[in-house]
Every structure is written in structure tokens, then in C-alpha cells.
Simulated scan of single mutants.
Amino acid sequence: MPALPILQYPDPRLRLVSAPVDRFDQELLRRIDELFETLYATTGIGLSAPQVGDLRRIVVMDLSGSHSKPELYVNPEILSSDVMGLVEESCLSIPGVVGNVVRATKLRVRAVDRAGHPFERDLEGMHAVCMQHEVDHLDGKLFIDKLPMIRRLAIRTSAAFKGTPEPVRPSPTAPSRAPSRRPAQEDGRELDGGAQPAPG
């Protein structure tokens, strides 16, 4: 299936708050596969449904570098956070912009898997950072909101001159694929940390 177009800042839809998923059906499963396909067509490590114009609380991640550890979080909630640190982030919806933001590097999260079963999980390092970045998207927030005011104004001014851009359809350099295995939290694999490309 083809990758979906990714909304680009300052598209106003990126500022909308997403609604919880309440139907776990075949349409949802198709959308999850499309989100993974879209993520794998980019250099990102995470993607949220609102970034493709779907205002549901769905996050997909894969920090493996080889598309081998897909992780799905439906209706994710951050239950607790700890150990703050300064991290470098960028965003698939704001290409070319990189900034340092303060994030927790340890999280406890609750979410639902593709079958509608709830689970809780501890995330650390870049996994924790990516989750916070994507949950921000679900709440209509962007990582640039955490940058110093002068930097935010420069980004907004530049974007204002460009107007609202058309969504960008990823162009993979290699054939992308939907995940062939269940997401990590469903089959019990441990999440790996370490330096990774920036979140979605």
C-alpha cells in the first residue's frame, strides 16, 4: 500500500486535538498498517495519526533502524515521567528544523494494542523522547513550541511567508513495507535505547 501524505507546518490541522479510538475494526487495522508504511518511507522513528490528517490517538514507532521492531500505541497516556534531559529533535511535519528541547528520559505509559487490549510499559532514552513527541502531536502541540521565543518567531515568520504547504508524500529510497510482526509491546520484546534519528 502507498505511503500517506504527511501534513506540513503550518497546516492548521496539526494544531487539532485527536480523539480516543473507540472502534477496533478492520478499518483501524488498515490505518495502522498505512501509518507504518508511511513511517518506513521516511527517515523518522515515530509517526502519529494526526500527521496524516487522521484525528485519532494512534502512535507508531520503530527505533530499530531496520524496520524490524514496530511498536503500536493506541490511546497512549503518560502515567509518570522522570530524569529530565536536553535532547535534539526534529519533525517530519517541520522539515529542516532542528532544536534542543527538555524531555523526560524515563516514562511509564499506558496504551491499547491493535486488538483493544490495554497494557502498560516503561520507556527509556530515545523511546521515551519519541513517545512524548508523538503524544504532543495527539494534543495539537509541536516540538517547536518548546523552543525559545525568538526561535519560534523566526520559524513561524518563515512558515507564514510560505503559506500552508501541501502535504508531502514520502519518497522512500528503498522499498518500504508494512510490519510483518506484531508490535513490540504485543509480543514481549524489550525496547532498545540509544541514539536514533529524530521522532516524527
Rank of each mutant, 00 (worst) to 15 (best):
G163L: 07
K146V: 00
S176E: 12
A104M: 11
P179A: 12
V112T: 15
R156A: 13
V129W: 06
D136K: 00
F161G: 10
R151V: 11
V98W: 14
P95G: 05
S158N: 04
S171Y: 00
L147D: 00
A104K: 07
A159H: 03
I155K: 01
N100Q: 12
D145E: 09
E124S: 14
P165G: 05
T173S: 12
C130E: 01
E134C: 06
G163A: 10
T164I: 14
S171Q: 14
R114S: 15
K141W: 07
E166W: 01
E166I: 09
P148S: 04
A160H: 12
S158Y: 06
V135D: 04
E89M: 08
R156V: 08
I155Q: 03
L107W: 06
D113L: 10
F161L: 14
T173I: 13
S93Q: 04
G140F: 01
P95A: 11
P179K: 09
K162I: 01
P165W: 02
E124G: 12
V102C: 09
R110Q: 13
C91R: 00
G163F: 07
I144E: 01
L147H: 02
S180A: 12
C130W: 04
S176R: 11
R108E: 10
V112L: 09
F119G: 02
R121P: 02
V101S: 06
K106S: 14
R156K: 09
S93T: 02
P172H: 02
L153G: 01
P148Y: 07
F119R: 06
M126C: 11
T105A: 03
L107Y: 01
R103Q: 07
R121L: 15
G96V: 14
K106A: 14
K106D: 08
A104F: 14
N100S: 11
S171I: 11
G163R: 02
D139M: 10
R114L: 13
H133Q: 09
G125R: 06
D122I: 15
N100C: 02
E89K: 06
E124Y: 12
A159D: 00
V101G: 05
D113G: 07
G140H: 05
R110S: 10
V98Y: 15
K106M: 13
V101C: 04
A128K: 07
L92E: 09
V109F: 08
G116H: 10
M149T: 13
P148R: 06
L92Y: 01
H127T: 07
R121D: 10
